[in-house]
Structure formats: C-alpha cells, structure tokens
C-alpha cells in the first residue's frame, strides 16, 4: 500500500493506471487504498464539464490542456462515456479528441464507462480523480457523458462546473428547464463559428439576468481555440476562490456525502434487484392478484429482505 502510494507520488504512470483499475465498483468492502485516498486528498479543486452529446466537451478539454500546460500545470483528465444499452461494452471516444497530449508527461487522461450508472458519471470517477490528485495533477478535469435531462450529478462531485452548450441542439430550452443551467459556475457556448451561436449566447445571458444570477457566459470555438484563453482566465478566478481553507473543508464534506449517496443508492438497488428476482415474488404476485394483501405490504417485505441482505453483507465484510 505505502509502496503504491509512493510510486504514485513519484509519478509512476503504470502504477497510477493500475490503481485506477482497482476500484471496488461492486460495492465490496473498500480497499485500504480507497481509505487512504479519502484521507489524503481534497486540496485540489476538480473542474467538471457537462453538456449535451456532441457539443464539443472533449474538444474544449483538448484546447484547455494546451493552455494549462503553457501555464505550467500538470493536468489530469477523467472522461466518461456511456455504456451501451445493448451490451456491457462501450466506445470510449473522448480521448480521440485529445490524442496530441498522449505522450505529454504532464497530462494523464483516463477514459471510463458509466457501467449502468445513470447520473452521467461512473462510480469509478471519484476514485480516478482522487488518484490523479494524489499523483500531483492539478487541476483535475472531469468530462461527463452527454447529458440529457436530470443528470446533474457532476454538481456533487466537481468544485467548479462548466456547462457547455452549442447551437443546433433544439432542446436547449429543455436543458434550461431540466436544471442544467442551475448547476453552472460558467457557461461556455461552443461552436461560435456557426451562425446561430450568438443568439444562444444572448438567450442564456437573458436567462441568467432573469434569475438574477451573476454567471459568466463565454463564447468559444473549441476547435480553433478562439475564446478558450478567456474561458480559462475565468476558470482561474473561480478556482482561486476555491482554494481557501473553508472551501477545502466543505469540499471534503461534499465529496464524501456524494460518495455515501452514490454507494448507498447503488447497494440498495443491487440488493433490491436480487430481492425482486427471488422466489417469494411469485407468491406476492398471486396474493396481490387475489386481493389477499396490499401493495404496501409487498413493498415493505421486499425492502426488508433487501435490507437484511445488506446487513448480512456488512457483517461478513
């Protein structure tokens, strides 16, 4: 363990890569590495990037990496793509946009799949980001999957949320409704080389004005890099405010709370899933259909079953 942590701190990339694979996403008893990570990280703010599919999040990260490197930063990236709905497989395509940084010693990129987790992030995200922090990467950038509606979980993980929007997504107003703008610390309107983009910039600014929120809306072209230095300046300003001691304390609390929530939800769902496929279910169906019991009874029995199983697991672990 200590040896692994030493290797990580010395910048051993293979050790880092291996450690990232070792996350206990199955809800098993956590490893000593996970405990150590929770203890020894929390100083570095994580920057989250979210927005609709194909809006240019990865391309923006690629451009930001160039400038962050010019500022002498060593940068870690966790990029999440969706697990297929048809198989357990996934195309992890974010990295294709960032390949020019592949052999840069000061950049470490890791691709993750959502693994049936529906919050736009993967269970391994937190683990990988913490490892990057431990290995001395600062800042850590997190790209979520292309979000649709209420997948705003990034807010509980990242210290700074960049919402990326772009023209041509007819449902932008729906995104506004679904709370995507609510989680933004900055909005980057990408693809401003396209004609409809300026209108979108104005619309989003009006939206914030109406809500009396002072959120900057930056017009960018991730592909050419236009506007990206301005966005980065804004991010540095916000980042500075997050490096105070109080910010650090609340960061530790928020990350752990998010972790508790995700893991608890995950374990409960799993246990419930097993209870739902257990042998008792058939009897309950029959009883319900005959009017011999109420749905509330069934719910409480199944929940109790799941709970007992969780308790058993904890005792065994």
């Amino acid at each position: 363990m200590n040896e692994l942590v030493n290797k990580l701190r010395q910048g051993n990339r293979r050790a880092l890569a291996r450690a990232m694979s070792s996350v206990g996403a199955t809800g098993h008893a956590e490893s000593s590495l996970e405990v150590c990570l929770r203890e020894s990280t929390g100083q570095v703010p994580w920057w989250g990037f979210t927005g609709p599919p194909g809006v240019g999040k990865s391309t923006l990260l690629d451009a930001l990496l160039v400038h962050l490197r010019e500022h002498g930063r060593r940068v870690g990236v966790v990029a999440v793509d969706p697990t297929s709905t048809r198989s357990d497989g996934a195309l992890l395509g974010d990295r294709v946009r960032m390949m020019r940084h592949a052999v840069d010693d000061g950049v470490f990129i890791r691709s993750l799949a959502t693994h049936g987790h529906h919050g736009g992030l993967s269970d391994a995200t937190l683990h990988c980001a913490r490892l990057l922090e431990l290995a001395g990467y600062d800042p850590v950038l997190i790209e979520t999957v292309g979000v649709g509606q209420n997948e705003v979980e990034i807010r509980s993980v990242a210290d700074l949320c960049v919402v990326v929007l772009g023209p041509g997504y007819g449902d932008d107003i729906q995104l506004v409704k679904a709370g995507l703008l609510e989680i933004a610390d900055v909005v980057a309107v990408n693809k401003c080389d396209l004609p409809e983009a300026q209108r979108l910039v104005n619309e989003v600014r009006q939206e914030f004005a109406a809500a009396a929120r002072d959120i900057e809306v930056v017009a960018i072209e991730a592909k050419s890099g236009n506007g990206v230095p301005e966005l980065l300046q804004r991010l540095f300003e916000l980042d500075r405010a997050r490096r105070t001691e109080t910010a650090e304390a609340s960061r530790g609390r928020r990350r752990t709370l998010g972790e508790i929530r995700r893991r608890t939800e995950f374990s409960c769902r799993q246990a419930l899933g097993r209870a739902m496929t257990g042998p008792e279910v058939e009897q309950w169906i029959t009883k319900l259909n005959r009017g011999e019991c109420s749905l509330a009874t069934v719910i409480s029995r199944l929940a109790a079953l799941a709970l007992a199983e969780l308790q058993q697991e904890a005792d065994d672990g």
Binding site: R86, S87, D88, G89, L91, L92, R95, S111
Partner: peptide, 9 residues
C-alpha cells in the same frame, strides 16, 4: 462494443 468490450479508439 456490442460484444461487451470497452473500446478505446
């Protein structure tokens, strides 16, 4: 991907 692998291209 359809066969269940995580693919990095």
């Amino acid at each position: 991907r359809d066969a269940g692998y995580e693919v990095i291209y």
